[in-house]
Every structure is written in structure tokens, then in C-alpha cells.
């Protein structure tokens, strides 16, 4: 069953957004200037939070892939239109 048929899996949404945020932060973190680092008391927060977000995103993506929602577990998508219990 494809994820579209099964409706909306919030885990994929979490993985997508946090993954994008993770990529952006990691890139910013690699190129942080001295001034940026000084502001954060010398800590590379962008880099580490970026990596952490990528890990969390990967974990949610993996979870959604290994244990996909069945139709009855999903919020209704537009092509089912019902109460989410119909297959």
C-alpha cells in the first residue's frame, strides 16, 4: 500500500521538514564565521543541531518505512474522503 493510499503519515512530514532543516543547518554550520562562533560562546551549535536533526529525520523516515500506517490508522486523505476506516 502506498503512502498516498494510506492517507497522511505525520512521521513522513516530520522526517521531511526536519531533514530539510538539518541539511540547511549543517551547511550553515560548516561555513559559520568566527563572529557566529563567538556569539554562541565558541560552540558549533548550527553544525551539531543540524546533524542531530538529520539523525532524528532519518529515524522517523526509517520508522515510517518499516512500520507503515495501514489505512485504518491514518487520518483520511482526500481520495478516501471517509472516516479513515475504509479500505
Amino acid at each position: 500500500m502506498t503512502s498516498r493510499r494510506a492517507g497522511f503519515d505525520v512521521r513522513i512530514l516530520i522526517a521531511g521538514l526536519l531533514g530539510l532543516y538539518g541539511v540547511v543547518l549543517t551547511l550553515v554550520g560548516v561555513t559559520d564565521s568566527e563572529a557566529d562562533l563567538a556569539k554562541a560562546d565558541g560552540l558549533r551549535v548550527n553544525l551539531w543541531i543540524g546533524i542531530a536533526l538529520l539523525v532524528v529525520a532519518a529515524a522517523f523516515g526509517l520508522w515510517a518505512r518499516l512500520r507503515p500506517l495501514t489505512a485504518e490508522h491514518a487520518a483520511p486523505g482526500p481520495d478516501e474522503g471517509g472516516d479513515g476506516t475504509g479500505r
Partner: peptide, 11 residues
């Protein structure tokens, strides 16, 4: 304002 660098600040 004081401590977050651009990037995590936006988040």
C-alpha cells in the same frame, strides 16, 4: 538575541 547564531536562530 544574545547567543543564537543565524540558522538555529531561525529555527
Amino acid at each position: 538575541q544574545r547567543y543564537l547564531p543565524n540558522g538555529v536562530l531561525g529555527i
